[in-house]
């Protein structure tokens, strides 16, 4: 299978503080990759570097066979990269449907009825259809997270980047979300998913990477990564060798 995304030696530092340290990995077309790591490890920074919200200090980002390191976030979105934000970023004064329309008309470059029906379909899929006319700024947390997912999908991405989309949800809400993401992945969508709710993550992803202090410290099949020494050290705080 061909590669949709490739990072090679991507670094980002603010002065002496290194927030991304030589990140190198690739994602196959249609693969679902999970990302875990403690708070402040640099997971969201990695998304910012992939999507172009933040420019890399060095290294290269390849997307769909093209070097996109110097492309703007807008250009990368139009090329088929869409993300959800960990802290939801709705267009607060617009309705849910209008939020979706922004993604469909700008990100996916759809027009008129085609854009409208795409938005209706996605809203139906993400469970927001009955709130289509609600003002986005007044939504509760679950719906804000759903709106993040909705907008990303309305941009008709080839690569979907999800940033802690299950965080703060109840068990039942989380289950619904996992089913939705599974269905999306089932259509052949390539996904990278950052998540603290590991049991939700493991239901979808085929491969897992672990990031700490801006560095990738483990990678591989989810079960073996979760059993690895590095992960146990980080999450359980035990010195395995001691």
């Amino acid at each position: 299978m061909s590669e949709i995304l490739g990072l090679s030696g991507v670094c980002k530092s603010y002065g002496a503080i290194v927030v991304a340290d030589s990140l190198t990995f690739s994602l196959r077309q249609g693969e679902a990759l999970g990302v875990i790591g403690p708070n402040g490890a640099g997971k969201t920074t990695m998304f910012n570097l992939i999507t172009g919200t933040v420019a890399a200090s060095s290294g290269r980002v390849q997307y769909n066979g093209r070097d996109v390191t110097h492309d703007s976030a807008a250009k990368r979105c139009r090329a088929g990269m869409a993300r959800s934000f960990q802290v939801p970023q709705p267009f607060g004064h617009m309705t849910v449907f209008e939020n979706a329309m922004v993604a469909a008309t700008q990100g996916a470059n759809l027009k008129g009825r085609e854009a409208e029906s795409t938005c209706l379909d996605v809203l139906d899929q993400t469970g927001l259809l009955d709130k289509a006319n609600a003002v986005a700024g007044k939504l509760a947390l679950l719906d804000r997270k759903r709106l993040e997912l909705t907008r990303a999908l309305c941009a008709k991405p080839k690569l979907l980047l999800l940033d802690e989309i299950a965080g703060g949800l109840t068990e039942e809400e989380c289950h619904l979300l996992v089913e939705t993401i599974k269905a999306i992945h089932g259509t052949g969508m390539s996904i990278i998913w950052i998540e603290h709710v590991v049991h939700a993550l493991l239901k979808v992803v085929e491969r897992l990477i672990v990031i700490d202090f801006g560095k990738m410290i483990a990678e591989g099949d989810p079960a073996s990564v979760m059993e690895s020494r590095e992960v146990k050290e980080i999450y359980l705080g035990i010195e395995v060798d001691a």
Binding site: A82, Q89, F91, G107
Partner: peptide
Amino acid sequence: TAIRDNELAASSLG
């Protein structure tokens, strides 16, 4: 209108 409400999200949506 999207830019008016949220520039970060607007740029990420193309």
